[in-house]
Design a protein around this nucleic acid. Structure first.
Lengths: 142, 142
DNA sequence: ACAAGTGATTGCTTTTTGCAAGCATAAGCG
DNA sequence: CGCTTATGCTTGCAAAAAGCAATCACTTGT
């Protein structure tokens, strides 16, 4: 069966079936805002993801079409992960989560700074950041 | 210890620690868009949440200050769940998830209709919907 | 009195996560 | 060459969470 049998066709549910867990969006955050591209970079996140979970999530994100995996030319062991447009389009979701947490959760001021700057810069800032990510990750090299 | 010891102070992470699972936002969706207020209404969702998970999530959402629980006057066994402002402010996140899924996932057209209408209505539609939820859930009765 | 409805709880199996260690290969360096 | 380090994972096992079906104490409605 090539049918993946979702719990329902509701848009909210379908999104949650892809990234509705405690780790997936952190990987996306790291590649988006910290510029991480390699396994061991993701592994060194503040939250301390373990390697088996990371391997699982990276494989899932690749198979979901949110990331692509390529070999580093000239360094055969290095894998380079890149965002697809589908992945870049997760940025508005992440930006909204950031806004909500900055309003209601005890965020670290240093880590909240980039989100605050984005909000201060107005609605075009997200589009600009997505365009920047497109330039880095799409159609070409890193 | 009243300190809940989060994995990190990153806004994205803090949000995920609250609603980063496959069920929590579905409960919020149901109270926001389907007008559900009672345990057995949530239980009857399309995705088939089981009662122990639902009970756990409702209690967590109440203790997180996203929902409040009140007794139905005149029906002592009935509990009424209401959104707080903190809960209503999750709407922009849910709306963005909806947008992403409608772009990339095989959504049910009927279930996608409300999100499409919201997008067509422009940026003020979310604010309007939040105001409507405020009128229903805040400072007063249902 | 009785059946149906209320928000859960309990017991149990299956799945997922978390953690530490290890693995096979490849670069880097003398 | 021979050693250390770096690379992206994999494995084994314990703990936590999810999933499922049955049940509970109590209330309403008839």
């Amino acid at each position: 069966m090539t049918q993946t049998s979702f719990r329902s066709g509701c848009p909210i549910n379908l999104g949650l079936e892809v990234f509705g867990d405690k780790w997936t969006l952190l990987v996306i955050r790291d590649i988006m805002f910290a510029g991480k591209r390699h396994f061991r970079e993701f592994l060194a996140s503040d939250e301390g993801i373990s390697s088996n979970i990371l391997a699982d999530r990276l494989a899932m994100l690749v198979s979901a079409g949110i990331l692509t995996r390529a070999e580093d030319p000239g360094h055969k062991l290095k894998a380079i992960y890149s965002l697809t447009q589908k992945g870049i389009d997760l940025l508005p979701i992440i930006a909204q989560i950031s806004r909500w947490s900055r309003a209601y959760m005890p965020v670290d001021p240093a880590l909240a700074a980039t989100g605050e700057a984005r909000d201060r810069a107005g609605p075009g800032a997200i589009e600009a950041q997505m365009e920047a990510l497109r330039a880095i990750h799409l159609s070409g090299d890193a």
